[in-house]
Amino acid sequence: MGFTLVAPDQPKEACALLARSAPGEISVLAGGTDVLPDVEAGRVRPSRLLSLRRLPWRTLGWNGGSLTIGSTLPLREIEADPGVRERIPGLAQAVHAVGSLALRHRATLGGNLGRAAPTSDLLPILLTLDAVVNLVGVDASRSVPVDQFVVASRSTTLRPGELIASITIPEARPSQYVWQRVRPSNDISQVGVAAARASRPPYWRIALGGVVPRSIRLEGAERLLPAVRPLVSELEAAAALAARLAPFATDKRASEAYRRQLVGILVRRAVASISPPIVPPVGVA
């Protein structure tokens, strides 16, 4: 289990190190909450760990309505940020849903995305916020929509020698992340639902976690919702469609039938907390 730890302070240097290394020889270390258990268990046997801790990426900054979060900022600092809590509540809720408090003091947004953590609680909300992943490489930088970045559990479109520098959320949106678990305080979510309302059409984004191979948007359900407050009947229709379309399977955490039940409930709750539905007066169909 012997490895050496390298901690460059220049992004280009880090990318060069990565580019020069053969696959499997080096592992990237951000918070370490995902990779270190793999090293400990012998699932990976890198000879070097590339630590990102000295890179200038522990940042969080607003540019008007747009938020950019450095990839190595611990999750705890995101959920504790008053601006995030007020302007993008769904992001604070999703970050709060990850692991335990102790873990969130180490774990990072970049690590969660870069490792394409299975059944991520973060990917659904990032999909609804149209988040963009900013990458640096040896020769060039590029930005990729999160939808095109995470392909599947443990699979991304990161190229050799590239690192995640930051994640940009282009617009602060009213948003919500709700989940269901066997053990509420710390568990893998059986189902997670994120919802957000954009300022321009198409207004609604609804995304689903707890599905394989990756979280997805429920665009059919999104289209059933109007710009502002939905009617109860519209919300019910969207929730029912979401429950019908969700690509669920039965596993040891939940049955397919239970997950379908949950999706309907969680879509209803997430949307309603952003825009309380209009209850028609009695007698109106």
């Binding site: 678990r181 066997v182 059986q190 040891k252 939940a254 039938a257 039940q261």
Partner: peptide, 21 residues
């Protein structure tokens, strides 16, 4: 009394689930 087991007892599930959850 896991959530799924309680939900099944409350007849919340549309069709019979097989998972344990």
């Amino acid at each position: 009394l896991t959530p799924e087991r309680v939900a099944r007892t409350l007849n919340l599930l549309a069709s019979g689930g097989t998972g344990r959850g």
